[in-house]
Design a protein around this nucleic acid. Structure first.
Lengths: 136, 136
DNA sequence: CTTGGTGCAAATGATTTGCAAGCCT
DNA sequence: AGGCTTGCAAATCATTTGCACCAAG
């Protein structure tokens, strides 16, 4: 049942209008384990539907982010990258040699940060950790 | 002995040329506990030396960052902010209501991340955690 | 039908760069 | 002297927006 209908439902359930462009973009983002930027998405989308414009990709990402369906990753310089909102909380590790972006699973970090925020008199809303590292 | 000479020495010891513009910028950045962006620095610098240009502020920040004297903070959207390279390792907390940027002291987070990276087969090079939170 | 979405191109905002002139070492 | 640094303005890059048209509910 991995079918385009799934993505349409995803949009519908989020209270968003279902358009072919949005469906295409959501399906691309759902089916990759990369963390593509707008240009990546635009090029891939273009191959499936040559009417898609960059402006729409930008607008769609913004709409999806506000709806809580995707997460925007802003790493130093470089254009923003995106991932479908993870159901399992995770952070990121950048391989400084290859530039690869790897996900760090687990709630260990979140648990610590929760406590750290509390100790500073704050309630944690969200967090993001980026580790730059090199393969051993 | 908090004197402009200190900042000149800082530059000299880093192997950089000492210019009035750089001295001004380093002193401004050293004496604030804000995390100013280029525009902030440009305006402040202007008041002390009206020959400073934005281009120079950008170029200086880049040079200082490469020399390891300052840290560049890229938070979602919004222009990059800067701080003198901290001798004590710390992360950041953004107050989602006020926009304030607070430093999170301590090595607790670093220790955990070191271990996490190792468990994934990586050697940690650097890390940065940003917590978005709300006052309790 | 009516509201919201889209493509296109122009506009914006942040940062970078080419060039001629000036300053640091 | 000779190379690095600067100011200025133009250029570049990522992202946003105005507008006329089209499509989803």
């Amino acid at each position: 049942m991995t079918h385009s209908v799934d993505y349409k439902q995803l949009l519908r359930e989020a209270g968003l209008r279902v358009t072919p462009q949005r469906t295409t973009i959501v399906s691309l983002l759902s089916e990759t384990d990369d963390h593509p930027n707008v240009e990546d998405l635009y090029e891939k989308a273009r191959r499936l539907d040559d009417t898609v414009s960059v402006a729409t990709v930008y607008r769609t990402m913004s709409v999806l982010e506000n709806a809580g369906l995707v997460r925007k990753l802003v790493l130093d310089d470089a254009p923003a990258r995106y991932e479908m909102m993870p159901h399992t909380d995770h952070d990121h590790l950048v391989d400084v040699d290859s530039g690869d972006l790897v996900e760090i699973p687990g709630t260990e970090i979140a648990t610590l940060l929760d406590r750290v925020a509390a100790e500073m008199g704050y309630e944690l809303v969200s967090h993001h950790t980026v580790i730059r590292a090199r393969k051993l």
